[in-house]
Amino acid sequence: MNKIKGLFKSKTTWFFLILLLFIYVNNSSLFAKRGEGAPLLLAHRGLGQTFSMEGIENDTCTAERINEPEYPFLENTIPSIEAAINAGADLVEIDVQPTKDHNFVIFHDWTLDCRTNGQGVTRDYTTSELQALDIGYGYTADEGKTFPFRGKAVNLMPTLDEVLGYFPKTPFLIHIKSEDQNEGIQMANYLEKLPESRLEQLTVYGGDQPIAALRERLSNLRTMSKATLKKNLLIYTAIGWTGYLPASLKHGQLHIPEKVAPWLWGWPNRFLNRMDNADTRVIVVEGNGSGFSSGFDTSADIKRLPEDYSGGIWTNRIDKIAPLYNK
């Protein structure tokens, strides 16, 4: 009887040892080669003004706390997008807001009071009314003593149509900033008119409800929401060690906080290879994911990434980060 128990324990021990060895080998980046190409660089809102992140909340007017301007660009405008592309951006993130006449304009805030000389919400104004506003009106670096962009940014709020037309080959990450299901339906109506080749260059992310509505209409579009991100990360945590990826993890986008990334099975190279095979784009964001617009904006930030990291990087300072990769 003791011999049988000993044999059973021995087989069980060997089983777990072999299983642990399999998990290690199957998830070690030591055995996962990556290409030598530079990381994909995502320029958040193009190239815009920087601001202090200290004590910032969702309703903080960031235009009132900008740093001394280093360049003449305002976020989410055609000049700022063009500057980001010229600086080396592979992908540009833009924010969309609905208008009264069922259009989309490129603008970060759902209210106008912070940045412009208008008041209220974008959806209460027509496209022409919004474009007549001065979107540089509220920017100040010295607590309201001077306004360096006031009077210089009238007619600079573009429509989504104008941006996609001006940059016909540029990949964009489109941000729906509400939880309104109707915005997802409106976006689907708009995107359905675009050729398949253009849709392949676009990704849409945002609130759970609009993204769910959008995916229902355009299942082949690359999308992401908080709900899909959480679901996919939980699934990967549970079964990713096997190398198997379910359908929900294919042809999507994952924004991975840098402090979460090291805990993912196979991080970095094995994980990135798996996501490449699943046609899922990986973008690393700074911190633990709770920060406001947190990006890799300095050379010191980049040094925290694995030396051979070749996934995507979220940055607010494409002008500072692209040169580090000779872009």
Rank of each mutant, 00 (worst) to 15 (best):
D180I: 11
N316V: 12
K33C: 02
P262D: 04
T140H: 12
P306N: 01
Y190V: 07
D180E: 13
I211T: 04
P72K: 00
A63L: 00
G311K: 15
G252Y: 03
V163R: 02
T126M: 02
R45A: 11
T62Y: 15
I4P: 11
S310L: 05
A278L: 01
T77W: 03
E286M: 08
G243M: 09
I318Y: 05
D134H: 05
F31A: 02
Y309M: 08
L21P: 00
R65S: 08
L305G: 05
L272C: 00
A141N: 07
T111G: 07
V154D: 08
K320S: 13
P195E: 00
R123V: 01
Q181L: 10
L254S: 05
K3R: 14
D59E: 10
L264P: 11
G144T: 09
T159I: 05
T127V: 12
P210Q: 10
P79L: 03
G6Y: 13
T203M: 14
Y125C: 01
V285D: 05
M1A: 15
Y166T: 09
L305Q: 07
G48Y: 07
W267L: 00
A322T: 11
F149Y: 02
L199T: 04
K145Q: 15
Y137L: 00
I283S: 06
S29C: 02
A141P: 10
A261H: 03
W314R: 08
K11C: 13
W265F: 04
L156E: 06
P268R: 05
V121Q: 14
I81C: 04
S294V: 13
D279Q: 11
T111M: 08
E93D: 12
L160W: 06
E68N: 02
E93P: 15
T146C: 12
V260A: 12
T77H: 05
G35E: 12
E162L: 08
Y125A: 07
A89C: 10
Q49N: 09
I185Y: 15
G207M: 04
L41H: 09
T60P: 08
K152Y: 01
K33W: 06
D101R: 09
S28V: 00
E54Q: 12
A212K: 09
C61Y: 09
E258W: 09
N117I: 02
A153K: 14
M53R: 06
I318M: 02
I106H: 14
G291E: 14
R317K: 07
M53F: 03
R215M: 12
T140A: 03
I256T: 06
N76L: 02
I185K: 15
L91N: 01
L234E: 08
Y190K: 07
G55K: 05
G295Y: 15
I235R: 03
G311V: 10
K250W: 02
F296V: 09
K231H: 03
R198E: 14
E307I: 05
L133E: 01
T203K: 08
N182H: 02
K303D: 12
S293F: 15
S294A: 14
G136P: 09
A238R: 08
W241L: 13
N58L: 12
L42W: 13
L173R: 04
P246R: 07
E68K: 08
S197F: 09
A238K: 13
W267A: 00
